[in-house]
């Protein structure tokens, strides 16, 4: 009896889901890239607290590192170094990071919270000394005020993590290209539009796609032609395809930061991921297109 009842229930739900997902996605399904929009009902106080924490050196064990050290918010959300200090990989941008389905170059994490806890505790990154940090913030008037307003419990480990997480989750910064996708056809140049067509036609969009133009699928570098790096020491691993949002301002490129210029990566991608040699105009056009993915910061 119950079994039958529940079974019909399941089936109904499934059809309903199909129905909705068809409606909601059909309008934008033709494009490989889904526009992003800012969260309209953001809690500004909490967001600002998160930003303060993001920039605060007292969150690190040696008290001279913050998230900001490697994720510069005024320079594309990365550090501009080949590989970050103490680390063997290039720092990716933190902008729009919540739109990634996998985090880090190897994509080992698929949720921000455990990833954040890992960074904070990682001796090579933040190496946080919780007792010190909580004590320091609890003696800081600016923080005690903000924490009291936002959380009843004041300064605590859970609340610090919660505020940072809120900041990461809501650091959504749309670009000119999003405006274009949402109907403003003059938002990007003619050359960028051509570049976008090339991007789709040559198959870049098979890997770099979705809301974050990447971050949702795993690939090696060198699927058509084996890639061993400019000086033969590129180690091929299965990587999360990186997001191309803000790519124009996050040089150097690749997970080991081995390529300096964006045009260089475009050529490299075409050659090793597609088995294709692009003309200079095509490279320029794609380059123009990628530049439109840079976040607009007020």
């Amino acid at each position: 009896m119950i079994y039958l009842l529940l079974n019909t229930l399941i089936n109904k739900r499934i059809y309903l889901c199909f129905f909705f997902s068809c409606i909601t996605f059909s309008c934008i399904a033709i494009e490989p890239i889904i526009p992003i929009v800012k969260n309209p009902s953001i809690d500004t106080e909490k967001f600002e607290l998160g930003e303060l924490l993001f920039k605060d050196n007292r969150l690190s064990g040696n008290q001279n590192t913050s998230c900001y050290s490697c994720h510069n918010l005024t320079a594309g959300g990365d550090d501009g170094l080949k590989t970050s200090i103490n680390l063997s990989t290039n720092s990716p941008t933190v902008f729009n990071v919540s739109k990634n389905y996998y985090l880090g170059w190897l994509g080992k994490y698929n949720q921000l919270k455990p990833h954040l806890e890992m960074i904070l505790n990682n001796p090579k990154v933040m190496n946080i000394d919780w007792a010190f940090t909580i004590n320091a913030l609890a003696n800081d008037v600016v923080y005690t005020k903000l924490f009291k307003v936002i959380y009843k419990t004041g300064v605590s480990k859970t609340n610090i993590i919660n505020a940072l997480l809120y900041y990461e989750e809501n650091l959504i910064l749309p670009s000119k290209f999003d405006a274009f996708l949402l109907g403003d056809i003059n938002a990007i140049s003619a050359s960028a539009k051509k570049g976008y067509e090339k991007f789709k036609d040559y198959g870049c969009a098979s890997c770099h796609q979705g809301a974050n133009v990447g971050g949702n699928v795993f690939q090696k570098l060198g699927v058509i032609n084996t890639f061993s790096g400019e000086n033969g020491n590129y180690a091929t691993k299965t990587l999360r395809v990186p997001s191309l949002r803000n790519v124009a301002v996050t040089s150097p490129y690749l997970h080991d930061g081995s390529v300096k210029s964006l045009k260089g990566v475009i050529k490299l991608m075409a050659k090793y991921q597609l088995g294709q040699t692009l003309t200079d105009t095509e490279v320029d056009q794609i380059h123009d297109f990628l530049k439109t993915l840079t976040s607009i910061i007020e």
Binding site: L9, I14, C17, F18, S21, A29, Q209, N216, V217
Partner: peptide, 29 residues
């Protein structure tokens, strides 16, 4: 029941990956 329907949606998304001009990995994920 919810889990089963989530599983069905997951399977559905994966099945329909070829039904768009561009496969939408976001939806499957």
């Amino acid at each position: 029941v919810k889990l089963k329907s989530a599983d069905a949606v997951w399977n559905y998304e994966l099945n329909s990956i070829h039904s768009d001009n561009f496969p939408h990995f976001d939806r499957v994920n």
